Simulated assay, not measured.
Amino acid sequence: MSLERARRHRFRSALALFLLAPLIGEFLLGNQPVTALPSVFLLAPLYGGGALLVREAARRAGRGWPTMILLGAAYALIEEGPVDQMLWNPHYGGFDMGAAYAGARVPLLDTGVQLLQDVLTMHTVWSICVPVALVEAFARDGDRTRPWLGAPGLSVTALVFAGGSGFLALAQVESEDFVATPAQFAGAGLVIAVLVTAAFLCRAPGARAAGRRVPGPWAVGALSFAATSGYWGREYLPDGVPAAVPVIGWAVLLAAVLVPCIWWVRGEGWSGAHRLALAGGALLTYAWVGLEQGRYLDVSRATGLIGSTVFAAGALALLVAAASSGARRGPGSPPPLV
């Protein structure tokens, strides 16, 4: 591939991630109806800019998925903390958040444990990691682990992210008529700083462990789908279930995915197909969740369901295309661990 073609391909990858992150984070989930599709350009500076900054920061530092996961968690706290303040607003979006998230609280952040779990899960997994993994699945000629942006592009992305975040933060203050306390902002800032620092202290896994068996991509994808669907299953728990049950269940599901993946990633058979399977399982979970939530959007029921079906079909088509792209490249030489 010529140098100019490689640059164009990396730019297209960056642009794809910039637009895909809000489409997954808001529209596939069913938070926004298809009639609001033009608003993707208002959401992209926050969602897409954040996902692109996370990916570029990790790849420029020579880091991989452990770093991106921790940076994704920092992004989650930025979005739902300083930007829209959902972590602290007891009436966010007109809902009684205090009643919905009653139970134990996290002292430093001054927010509910279950709310914090939701924020970290949705944004780390679906706003950051899933879009990055999907777009990287189309990368070629070593571009998967290379930066896609030069210094000017990275600077512009940072400015767009900061500007978009500031705009949305001001809009939220205006619409919600709520501002958190200085102590709440300071607590969130401290945790975000700790997460960012920890992210860059992470190193890539060691050498591949000879003889370590890795299940096939279908099994890994099934685990991802089951765990992420189980997470959303908490929405269907009957009234009266103790608040500790979903909190503990979240921890169990997290361990059920992280522990085997940490073991498998150093196996000789771990490949891009396995990474895509993890992302694909989570993507399909958002597809069925979006179909469920499409009925409750502020549009007609038919419009909501049609829109959710379109987004779900688009997600499935994207996943198939990503898998086909990897299959066309073939196994080749052993890919980097991260």
Rank of each mutant, 00 (worst) to 15 (best):
L291Y: 05
V191F: 13
T285K: 01
F18Y: 15
I24Q: 04
S165V: 02
F95A: 15
G272E: 13
T67Y: 07
H91R: 15
V299A: 01
I306N: 01
L254Q: 11
S2N: 15
W65R: 11
P66S: 03
M86N: 10
L195I: 06
L108F: 04
W218H: 13
V34L: 15
L254N: 02
L168E: 13
L53N: 04
D298V: 14
P242E: 04
A99Q: 13
G280S: 14
V135G: 01
R144T: 04
A74W: 08
A162N: 02
P131N: 08
G240E: 07
E4L: 13
A193T: 10
V194S: 09
G280K: 00
F18W: 13
D143F: 10
P90R: 07
A139I: 06
E80D: 14
A287V: 00
I192H: 07
F311A: 12
L42V: 12
S2C: 00
R7G: 03
L108N: 10
E136T: 11
M86C: 07
I128H: 00
E79G: 12
T145Q: 12
V257Y: 09
A186E: 03
E174C: 01
G206R: 08
G294I: 02
V191E: 09
G304S: 11
I262G: 11
P82I: 10
P246K: 06
G230H: 09
F41P: 03
G221W: 09
G280N: 02
H91W: 13
F138D: 09
P334D: 08
L134A: 05
L283R: 04
I262W: 14
F311M: 10
A317G: 05
V132H: 02
Y236F: 14
G81S: 11
V34I: 15
P131I: 00
P331V: 14
A302S: 11
L42K: 10
V247K: 02
G189R: 06
A198S: 02
L291R: 08
A322W: 00
L159A: 15
A315D: 00
M97Y: 04
G211M: 08
G249M: 09
Q32E: 13
G240M: 03
A273T: 00
R12P: 01
P260M: 08
Y101A: 05
D239I: 01
A302W: 10
V54D: 02
T124I: 04
E80P: 02
W264D: 05
A6H: 10
V247R: 12
L3A: 15
G269Q: 15
S39P: 02
Y47F: 14
C129W: 12
V125P: 00
L318R: 07
A256V: 00
